[in-house]
């Protein structure tokens, strides 16, 4: 008998699967909503990039490319980004880089994961700044990009903990693992 055959098991499975998406939706809303001073500083960090990085390392199937594209596009649409599609490109490229390196990253200590995010965020912000200069045909102030990068690195452990908790709630993938609901076994399937 399979692990999710009864109705309650199926309902539990669906509820557990929805938790990371609910967390993602919350992170998305917090990325676009206005939060006044002094809390504003926490929301200037690249929260969505952190979530994309986390799931691309630990379970890329949860965040497929079309969803990353949709997140980037919606972000640009709602925040009134003059260059529509830029966030989608940046997030998709970020996902490609991380998925390519995930065989190295999975199973590493938190410090390595943190350093991995610092490297990805550096590339992300440099590319974002370069594109903004190129598209607007002038040198853009770097202060906002630097503060977003530094905040991202500082706040990464807090969001990592939050995402890790939602990861623990996830049911283990059925395809290759026979582990029970709530297993923390890392999914290596794409």
């Amino acid at each position: 008998m399979g692990p999710y055959e009864s109705l309650t098991d199926k309902m539990e499975f669906i509820a557990r699967m929805l938790v990371p998406y609910a967390v993602l939706a919350m992170i998305f809303i917090l990325s676009i909503v206005t939060v006044p001073y002094p809390l504003a500083v926490f929301f200037q960090a690249p929260l969505l990039l952190m979530a994309i990085y986390y799931w691309s390392v630990y379970r890329p199937t949860l965040l497929p490319p079309w969803l990353v594209f949709a997140i980037g596009l919606l972000l640009d649409l709602i925040t009134g980004m003059p260059y529509l599609g830029l966030s989608a490109i940046l997030f998709l490229l970020g996902r490609i880089v991380v998925v390519d390196q995930r065989r190295f990253l999975t199973g590493q200590s938190f410090m390595v994961i943190w350093m991995g995010f610092a490297a990805l965020a550096a590339l992300f912000h440099i590319f974002q700044w370069s594109m903004s200069c190129l598209l607007s045909l002038q040198w853009m102030p770097v202060r906002d990009f630097v503060s977003s990068y530094v905040l991202g690195i500082v706040l990464f452990p807090a969001l990592y903990l939050f995402l890790h908790l939602s990861h623990k709630i996830l049911p283990a993938p059925i395809s290759r693992s026979k582990t029970r609901i709530g297993s923390q076994k890392t999914d290596m399937t794409l």
Binding site: P65, V68, F69, Y83, L84, G85, L86, I89, L92, L93
Partner: peptide, 17 residues
Amino acid sequence: ATGLLVIMSVGLLAVST
């Protein structure tokens, strides 16, 4: 799929620019 989505994003970027 990812490449196709990147191409679509570049298209959107070009139109909006």
